[in-house]
Design a protein around this nucleic acid. Structure first.
Lengths: 256, 256
DNA sequence: ATAGCCTATGACCTAAGGTTAGAGTCAAGC
DNA sequence: GCTTGACTCTAACCTTAGGTCATAGGCTAT
């Protein structure tokens, strides 16, 4: 009858001695017996069990759950596997989203290394158009415009990239909500995110009223100039209208 | 100038008060000031910073790394993002493999709920063929065959499913190594796994010599009857030959 | 007997907080 | 002025799955 010491078993199974200690203490894998000097001794059955444990551990099961799988006769292994699979899939989906977000951020970071700053506020517009919007804005809001331009200069490049990444994510969600009511909680929640995002570009100066007006004004701009709401080079006037209405509603109901 | 208490800031950003305590202690987000009673007070800048922190946290960055991204001027954010993306991709790939493994195990578990046991040893064969192999085995190995059949009965259903899952994984690896030398370390490592796997079906009785012979005999069987090495319903005689040779080499060089 | 391994237990450490516990703070209502 | 309830503070323990000592004892060969 083969007997293994901790070290031998550990080597056979490719784990550390510490691991066996832990499994012993928590009752997941008890040695077959002990010597007089309390040395742990394992047999073939224990090796078998250890390899079962490692099978499930590789599948990212927690040790407690493995113990159940192996010991609880009433435990439905099939159920557990299916359930676990759902969890792993969710993680996988999440990772996919994260990777997309990283890609976007990287892209934004690349762009910003080229295009430096106050131009950001008028991004995507021709120089003349930008100039004319700026003049118009100054007429309307005066001082605040300069402050906004200054606030923007204080943002770091990664910060701008992050904010832009968030913008495209918000835009995606809002676009998918285009058939919902502009007053719905879902839409207004995203608009709130959008507002906070824009506010970080603009800075937090000005009274609540001024901010609300400026935000609604931006919404109007989206309708007047479709380039603001282009997605992948295509314009979406119906989305621009939806967005603008939702922003106006938000400015009037939640910012005053 | 807006000032936020811990609770207010926590609510605004959707985190717990504890989280803010932790960020404070580790220096990731210090309050702007403290009241006389040591209450933390945060300003707009801190809210902004917190949201930056959450941006990276959602991307599964560790807090330490986030601190670097935000504070270390010489830290290359772009590099960090790219590197992080590679990590996430690796995790994603691993998850994909795990899910496949779970699927296999679920399939095996389903099958075993139907087909109950000693038949497993002759799986995939017609009843007559199975009978004839069994008779042949008994002539060759005598007693051992009965012991194997008994050993098999002691395995639980999930155990059998796990072992079969492992078998298909080993088979996949070996199949991808078909152009390598049968004596190569890579091939022999997988053969060792295969042997250990088979041994769990057979049990551990018999002398080392008997076990080695029986294992080599199984390899011969793979060549004689292509149904043993079918993958997705297709037979692969060249793989059967490769496998059989590798098993023979293993039996002769590592089992004696 | 001593050197060189092996083993045992116990304690501390990791990440990112959750969860009490005990004590102090603040504003409101009586 | 006092109590009540909500808020805040720090400190300490708990979580996973072990890694990494520290200290003490065991085993075998020279």
């Amino acid at each position: 009858m083969q007997k293994y010491s901790v070290k031998q078993l550990a080597k056979l199974a490719g784990v550390s001695v510490r691991t066996l200690h832990v499994y012993d203490k928590m009752g997941l894998l008890k040695p077959l017996s002990r010597t007089e000097a309390k040395y742990r001794l394992y047999g073939e059955q224990e090796l078998l069990r250890l390899q079962q444990i490692l099978f499930y551990k590789e599948l990212d099961f927690q040790l407690q759950e493995i113990a159940q799988i192996l010991d609880d006769k009433d435990f439905d292994v099939m159920d557990s596997l299916k359930n676990h699979k759902v969890n792993l899939r969710a993680k996988q989906d999440r990772l996919a989203t994260l990777i997309l977000t990283i890609d976007k951020t990287i892209e934004n970071l690349k762009k910003d290394t080229v295009m430096s700053n106050p131009a950001e506020l008028y991004e995507g517009l021709s120089a003349e158009k930008a100039q004319s919007y700026r003049t118009e804005a100054i007429e309307k809001y005066g001082e605040e415009v300069y402050k906004s331009e200054k606030a923007l200069l204080k943002l770091t490049k990664p910060q701008i990239a992050e904010l832009k990444t968030e913008q495209t994510e918000i835009a995606q969600k809002l676009f998918s909500l285009i058939h919902k009511s502009i007053e719905s909680e879902q839409v207004q929640t995203q608009i709130a995110r959008h507002y906070e995002n824009i506010r970080k570009f603009w800075g937090t100066h000005g009274s609540a009223d001024t901010q609300a007006e400026a935000y609604a004004g931006l919404g109007q701009l989206y309708v007047d100039d479709e380039r603001f709401t282009m997605i992948d080079g295509k314009s979406h006037p119906e989305y621009a209208l939806f967005l603008s209405k939702a922003m106006k509603y938000f400015a009037e109901n939640r910012l005053k």
